[in-house]
């Protein structure tokens, strides 16, 4: 029992702070990536009743512009995680929409399991699955198209911008791997 509580104390220190150039490039990548899809969403997609941006992309931006070496931030995880989680989320909503709390729990938990099993773990995928359930009528009306746009398509555009921006500075390279 003592050992159990001792585990809660932690065993190691927090990683070092990154340098200023890393901070600046993270900011720039996120600004351009989110800026682009938010702009297209507002000026084109809204008018044809479609979506290009969802909340989970904010979390993806942290990874693919701010922690670009992370296994969680690699293209396989970014694209695979969003698309698979979106499918799981839509399926959960359509099966269990009578009980939204249950559909939500199933969506997120199953999304994590599927991402693990397919080696595509990407934390924002959990949000993508949850948004499919609690994102409102506009999202629900998209049906499984939600997995293609915004989830897959938006993530793909963010990926292109990550490739362009993250490889400019000498000290950075992206991705670590593709598949």
């Amino acid at each position: 029992m003592n050992a159990y509580f001792r585990k809660m104390k932690g065993t190691t220190q927090s990683p070092p702070r990154v340098n200023m150039s890393e901070i600046v490039w993270s900011w720039l990548g996120a600004f351009l990536g989110i800026g682009f899809i938010a702009f297209v969403n507002a000026n084109i997609f809204e008018k044809i009743d479609l979506l290009m941006i969802i909340g989970s992309f904010g979390a993806s931006a942290v990874l693919i512009y701010g922690a670009i070496k992370s296994p969680l931030a690699q293209p396989r995880n970014l694209i695979g995680g969003h698309i698979l989680s979106a499918v799981v989320g839509v399926a959960s909503y359509q099966l269990f929409h009578a009980h939204l709390w249950f559909a939500s729990a199933v969506a997120v938990a199953t999304a994590i399991a599927v991402m693990h099993a397919t080696k595509t773990l990407h934390p924002p995928g959990g949000a993508t699955a949850l948004i499919a359930v609690i994102g409102g009528e506009k999202i629900h009306n998209l049906g499984y198209f939600y997995a293609l746009m915004p989830a897959g398509g938006g993530a793909l555009i963010m990926l292109v911008i990550a490739l362009l921006v993250n490889n400019v500075p000498k000290t950075r390279k992206y991705p670590e791997f593709w598949i």
Binding site: S14, P15, V18, E22, G66, P71, T171
Partner: peptide, 14 residues
Amino acid sequence: MKDIPGYLDITPGD
């Protein structure tokens, strides 16, 4: 970890 530029998604312990 400080020698390697960029954020390493791992704790020093791991």
